[in-house]
């Protein structure tokens, strides 16, 4: 082949481009992680918008013409031996109205433990309108052996919530955080110790 040498040069260039593409795609895979979190936060998917505090718009009006029923549910992850229940199964709120509710938690594991509740809100189309100003789920919670407490959630439903939303569910799954303890003070803010 008389064009042998230029062909090899072309090969090198093409290979370089392709290998860069492969490395880029590997990086892209990891870029999907923050990308996913941003998108989820925007659309309120998987409780990603419900695990950080929002500020209340001072001009917010309570829309008394509408009432939304909010159900609460709790799940223990794996074999975590906790009693963890909402004090009220459900409440009725007007959009824009601020509410405080409590969840009862009791450490029955027989040892000191750090746990965290991960929220999830349905229906998905309304999820991002359920906003919290304060919640025990924002941080990890430390429980002594046998400790019991009522834990607060301050929330409201943004009046911009879709018209067809009549009912919402706020659910928490309680996780054992022993493997993932963050370096912070034992956080118990707002808790009513029992």
């Amino acid at each position: 082949m008389n064009t042998k040498i230029p062909a090899t040069k072309n090969n090198k260039r093409l290979i370089t481009i392709l290998v860069c593409g492969v490395i880029f795609m590997f990086g892209f895979c990891y870029m999907l992680v923050p990308l996913y979190n941003i998108v989820c936060k925007q659309i309120g998917f998987n409780g990603k918008s419900a695990n950080s505090a929002t500020l209340v718009n001072p001009n917010m009006q309570v829309d008394t013409s509408r009432t939304i029923k909010v159900d609460f549910s709790t799940t223990m992850h794996g074999n975590l031996n906790f009693k963890f229940i909402p004090l009220q199964r459900h409440i009725e709120v007007h959009p824009g109205e601020r509410k405080l509710i409590y969840f009862y938690a009791e450490n029955k594991t027989g040892k000191d433990i750090t746990v965290q509740a991960i929220p999830s809100i349905t229906p998905n189309d309304a999820a991002r309108f359920l906003k919290k100003t304060e919640c025990f789920c924002f941080t990890q919670q430390y429980f002594f052996k046998g400790e019991k407490a009522d834990m607060p959630v301050y929330f409201f439903i943004d009046p911009a919530v879709p018209k067809e939303t009549k009912e919402m569910t706020l659910s928490y799954t309680l996780f054992d955080e022993t493997e993932f303890i963050k370096k912070q003070k034992h956080f118990t803010k707002g808790r009513i110790d029992l």
Partner: peptide, 27 residues
């Protein structure tokens, strides 16, 4: 897409052994 699969199983490996939590809600 093969690099994405490689990234995916690498994340699994990290979750299993290197204390990350890409796929673990607890972390």
């Amino acid at each position: 897409v093969m690099p994405v699969l490689a990234g995916c199983v690498t994340m699994m490996l990290m979750d299993r052994h290197f204390h990350t939590s890409f796929f673990d809600a607890a972390g």
